[in-house]
Design a protein around this nucleic acid. Structure first.
Lengths: 208, 208
DNA sequence: CCACTTGTTTAGCGGTCGCTACAGAAAAAG
DNA sequence: CTTTTTCTGTAGCGACCGCTAAACAAGTGG
């Protein structure tokens, strides 16, 4: 009873926590927060309810963790596209182009979890709606920062409003996500992305 | 017992059916299909459950009627814009511009019911999801028809693909709807609509 | 008045929801 | 071995879900 601080006492967990989290993510991704019951989660994760609650807290805490995991894994391509491309225009184009394939990839639910997992919520779980709303806001702000940086370096006309342009890109992405849910193919979404980029402001020095 | 076919026997209904339908619509619009319980509906409509079932059938039948009503009343501006404007370009621009104010109007839920009321559904009510999916498809086809007509009359370059362009407009509209839910103002959505129309194909004869 | 039809009210059905009390099982510590 | 700690399985809590049986109320037709 003295210094048992190794955190290793007691019966060991009988399942892989990371794998269980991923399975939970799949279900939330497919059906959304409220429509995913604890019973469905335990079935899919292969564990009983008390194990779930011991490992992840309550349903909402689990969902938060799922969202964090999703964003860091399945949303990472966005930040990469914006960082790695030399100009904001090619960055946004690449981001939307990659979104077309990410949102329709085989072997996973279609569309974006952040865009759809908590759109229709009972009054009891507005908190969950807020979590995703905040994530969408963060994405939009990332767009805005990149655009503002480009404008300051003279890459875009000074008349461009970063907030407005960022909102436009977010609109296109979210619309593409809905289309993916409704069955649009990768090629169809790529065409949408290409069309959307026709609205992108011309560089200051580029005459036609 | 002979020919009482006037449909006027029995105790008369004690509530206004049309008003009850409208109140139901508000609730579905705000919360979506599954998150709106019968208890919430009866409370809001001011009637008891058996009256609801007698007048509207079950929950899904009521929802279908709500959707039809919504589309014919709150979605009518779309068809009007596309019909009344002389060119497809001004028609789409007006439609998106009006959407910016429709989706953020005071005194009603934000965003489009058809876009959001059944995004996260349990396996038990995929049917409802299909109803709205079909409505979205109908909207997109309406866009496509108008674009095709314009192309055939030489109003658009022959390289334009009506289906692709229609999907782009649908993407913008659905994204705007999401933004409206997330709190975007009418002015902000109008800016998005204006930006989106920058991608609209130039008329064949119009040089710059 | 009575017969008939239809709406309303109360009360509650079987089922699922998120969540947990409790007892047993599996590890480390002594 | 026993004790302590932590996880697992069963079983079920109270609340809510969509929906409805049954008794009563309010009209029409005779």
């Amino acid at each position: 009873m003295c210094f048992m601080v190794r955190g290793q006492s007691g019966r060991p967990r009988s399942f892989d926590r990371a794998e269980a989290l991923e399975r939970a993510m799949r279900l939330f991704w497919e059906r959304g927060y409220e429509a995913t019951s604890i019973a469905a989660l335990t079935r899919e994760m292969g564990i009983a309810a008390p194990s779930l609650y011991a490992a992840f807290g309550d349903k909402m805490t689990l969902f938060r963790e799922v969202v964090d995991f999703y964003v860091s894994v399945y949303g990472a391509y966005m930040g990469r596209a914006l960082e790695e491309e030399p100009t904001v225009g090619t960055g946004m184009a690449r981001m939307l182009h990659e979104a077309a394939s990410e949102l329709t990839a085989d072997g996973r639910p279609r569309g974006c979890l952040v865009a759809f997992a908590a759109n229709n919520c009972s009054p009891s779980c507005v908190e969950v709606e807020q979590v995703l709303r905040q994530q969408r806001g963060a994405m939009q702000e990332e767009f805005e920062r990149r655009i503002r940086k480009a404008r300051e370096s003279g890459e875009l006309p000074s008349g461009v409003e970063p907030k407005e342009l960022a909102r436009y890109v977010a609109v296109v992405f979210q619309g593409m996500s809905q289309q993916a849910r409704d069955g649009a193919s990768q090629a169809e979404l790529e065409a949408v992305a290409a069309t959307a980029m026709l609205a992108w402001p011309k560089a200051p020095g580029a005459e036609e």
